[in-house]
Write a protein that binds this DNA or RNA. Structure first.
Length: 283
DNA sequence: AGTGAGACCCGAACGC
DNA sequence: TGCGTTCGGGTCTCAC
């Protein structure tokens, strides 16, 4: 595992959120569309939702059609009409290689496409479930809107946020309010907007809500452009994935000077989650 | 309704 | 070197 200059451990404090999953989606879409699945192997039975034999039999006999994303989920649409629904949860990540070019650790599951292999690593609570389209739809039905949907407006954002009365961060990471925001990007977008993540929602001024909406989009777009913050490259020579790591301004930077005002960043705990903010420039 | 706690899970870090 | 212990965190569910 990589460590930075201060010997701070990286890679297990940040879990894949929308930009990381969207980065994966793009990389997978390029590689998998139309490809026949030639082999499947399940090392960890809890990864899947049906007996391994039935899973392997179904998946091996079909091909990928498209790769979509909804919130933090990836949907592999299969030509059989079924869907593989992936959630990486805590510490999960993907690697694209061959039988020789793989990571020096066990994968919980692999899917082969000719000589290429998609490795599923770090699936502790994560899963890859084989579902009908209807089942997949039902699973995702309660998710909030996609923050980067061009049809998603500031007015809609304000309406959703105002349905909640608690702490701002609670609403931002609630998948039923918005799909895809997790612990890290919630703190990052609050910092970008200059608003403290533990503010009570009713105390937010209309102008602050507008700023939050703008920051939500700005931070996610920026993260996407830099390939998200995943530590592990998706394939050998991958120079994009994880490029956003150095762009995180507050998350996991407790005690470091704020990049905007140099005030030391506060690390706090709220509802058993870490929260990072700057009391110098966030109100 | 919001908050907190517990369960789920297991690789990695750490202490001895 | 190697064992045992601790930790973390997204999501769901339940209690207050």
């Amino acid at each position: 595992m990589k460590q930075n200059g201060e010997n701070r451990l990286e890679g297990y404090t940040k879990m894949p959120e929308l930009p990381e999953m969207e980065t994966y989606r793009r990389l997978l879409q390029e590689r998998l569309t139309g490809q026949a699945i030639t082999d499947v192997s399940v090392q960890r039975e809890k990864t899947i939702n049906i007996p391994a034999a039935a899973f392997e039999e179904h998946v091996k006999g079909t091909a990928f059609s498209t790769v979509e994303r909804r919130g933090k989920h990836i949907l592999f649409r299969l030509q059989s009409g079924r869907v593989l629904l992936l959630h990486l949860m805590l510490g999960g990540f993907l690697y694209w290689g061959t039988a020789e070019d793989k990571l020096d650790r066990t994968a919980q599951m692999t899917i082969s496409v000719g000589r290429h292999v998609l490795y599923f690593h770090g699936l502790r609570l994560g899963y890859l479930h084989l579902l009908t389209q209807e089942e997949a739809e039902n699973r995702l039905a309660k998710l909030g809107p996609e923050p980067l949907d061009p049809l998603f407006t500031a007015e809609q954002f304000t309406r959703l946020i105002q349905k909640k009365r608690g702490v701002l961060k609670a609403a931002l990471v609630d998948q039923h309010v918005l799909a895809g925001i997790g612990n890290c990007y919630a703190d990052e977008l609050c910092h970008h907007a200059g608003i403290l993540p533990l503010r009570r929602i009713p105390s937010l001024q209309p102008e602050e809500e507008k700023r939050l909406f703008h920051s939500l989009q700005a931070v996610l777009h920026d993260a996407l452009e830099h390939g998200g913050y995943m530590e592990t490259p998706f394939f050998r020579g991958d120079g994009l994935t994880g490029g956003y790591n150095e762009h995180c301004r507050v998350y996991d930077r407790g005690g470091e000077p704020c990049p905007r005002c140099a005030h030391p960043i506060t690390q706090d705990v709220w509802s058993s989650r870490k929260v990072f903010y700057c009391t110098g420039c966030q109100q």
